[in-house]
């Protein structure tokens, strides 16, 4: 079985500040980490490989520094790591990101199963997985909470959709996005790290992709545009309750009762 895991390197923190004069964004931290949700995707893939045999390829789009994340994936047991990296991919929204990933997957000769984390911690959209499935014209199941069964030709998964827990069987090729806590991601192993020290990470640029139409990639291929960024609104007026603990508690209680809240 050939499995591709989509991963992303995200900023380690989410602290950003807006320059009040220019309105431009100042990113405070340049430290990065692997999107924590993707670790569950990788672990799911590695467990499936242990059971079924085959290969696990990790795929990302991003700057060259994502190589460190890919090296970690090698040290966890991934067989191949590929980075789609090109300045032409910069400014991609969901549509062009998922399209670029699809092009990358085409170069890699497709896959039986594609696994994504439920969302990233920087974009928070949870959209790239299903969008990628649509680009590839394959079925998908999002928010997967458990793998029930896997065979040579299909996979059965449990999903939670609101109040409904659903188990579906999906034929390969297909895509799933997995929830956190469906497994315990392993840590990079020191032995594997030594073993894979010389293993290269493969880089793919725009020129390597089958579709050379620039309007499909990066900012050009992105129908959404950020018009402006601004800090969240300030809260409304507030009341500080004063006095002893008893008095404060009693006052709060009286307010809640008089406002008919309780």
């Amino acid at each position: 079985m050939k499995i591709i895991v989509c991963m992303k390197q995200v900023p380690a923190g989410t602290n950003v500040e807006i320059d009040p004069e220019t309105g431009a964004m100042k990113r405070l931290s340049s430290a990065t980490r692997t999107n924590p949700y993707d670790l569950f995707a990788l672990e799911t893939a590695l467990l499936l490989k242990e059971k079924m045999g085959g290969t696990v390829t990790v795929l990302t789009m991003g700057p060259a520094q994502a190589e460190s994340m890919m090296k970690d994936a090698y040290a966890c047991g991934a067989d191949e790591a590929v980075i789609l990296s090109d300045r032409k991919f910069a400014g991609s929204d969901v549509l062009s990101t998922s399209y670029t990933l699809r092009q990358g997957i085409q170069v890699l000769g497709g896959a039986d199963l594609i696994i994504c984390g439920r969302q990233t911690t920087d974009g928070d959209t949870a959209q790239v997985g299903p969008a990628l499935a649509e680009h590839m014209h394959i079925p998908h199941a999002a928010w997967v909470t458990r793998i029930e069964e896997v065979t040579e030709k299909d996979i059965s998964v449990q999903q939670k959709l609101g109040d409904v827990t659903q188990v579906s069987r999906i034929p390969f090729p297909c895509l799933i996005t997995v929830e956190k806590d469906m497994c315990v991601p392993r840590l990079p192993s020191w032995i594997l790290k030594k073993k894979t020290a010389d293993r290269k990470v493969r880089f793919l640029s725009f020129e390597d992709l089958p579709n050379q139409d620039l309007t499909r990639y990066g900012l050009n291929g992105s129908p959404t545009a950020v018009e402006r960024m601004f800090p969240p609104e300030k809260a409304q007026k507030q009341v500080y309750l004063e006095g002893s603990t008893e008095e404060k508690t009693k006052e709060l209680f009286d307010i809640l009762v008089s406002r008919k809240i309780i």
Binding site: D122, G123, T224, V226, E227, R228, M229, F230, P232
Partner: peptide, 10 residues
């Protein structure tokens, strides 16, 4: 966006 630290108008 960015964990709610900033609002984005799209």
């Amino acid at each position: 966006a960015f964990g709610g630290n900033i609002m984005a108008q799209i």
